[in-house]
Amino acid sequence: MERANTLSATIMPPSPAKRRPAQMLGYAMMAGLAIAALGGPALIGADPAKQSLLATLQSPSIAHPLGTDHLGRDMAARLLSGAQLSLSLAFLSVITAGLPGAILGVLAAWFGGWTDRILGAFADAVLALPGLLLVLMLAAISPGSWWALYAGISLTLWVEYFRYTRQRARISLAEPSVEASRMLGLGPWLLVRRHVIPEIGPGLLTIAAFGAATAVTSVAALGFVSVGIRPPTAEWGVMMTELLPYWREAPFLILQPVACLVITVLALHLSVGGLRRL
């Protein structure tokens, strides 16, 4: 009895104020990552490709703040270059998956009927395979190509936006307020802008953040299994594969790209309140 009573008070979702510190942390991490990605290796003035075979696997020093890898390349510069590659691809895939996904979602909800059925069947076809498997196959058509990876990720991720937008748009287009606006003779563009977009905006942001995290993870996973981006490009997954044989001499090196990847995904999850969508 008493347990049930205390529970009813605690089952309420945590108040927004409680969630804010985590979200703020996410924003701060995102800002740091954005600076790293925009600046790239130029931030520390080092060349990520410059080898120095006399200074391999070095510990952090003033010249190399994060040490050097097995070919004497500056780790900090390589990590920054990897951040540039992963985050730009993630950002682009959010746009090329999100815009068509959301627009097609609204179209499917607006027209219904065969438009809806055909688009829905196409979305189901993409969802028939686990996402990463599809990305892996599409990237394998032309291994090592940035474009194949990018196209594969975008083609896999648009479905999330489409399904969410379609579902929410159907609900909001059926509301009496929309019907009233329609009878007033307001055009479709105005209806979508005033009634649908405010409704789906926040949800789309969440999907975008999680989609970007998926994109970053996929790039690293494919790089790690030697199917995605190829060496000598500095990419986090490729760096993990390259540095794995040197765990005994320099375990701190392999952990650096791992940490970068985890921080990026964590930043994206936290910035949209990762606690909620667990």
Partner: peptide, 10 residues
């Protein structure tokens, strides 16, 4: 939340 952000291979 933290472990969810860690990819399986990492």
């Amino acid at each position: 939340v933290f472990l969810r952000a860690v990819p399986a291979f990492a």
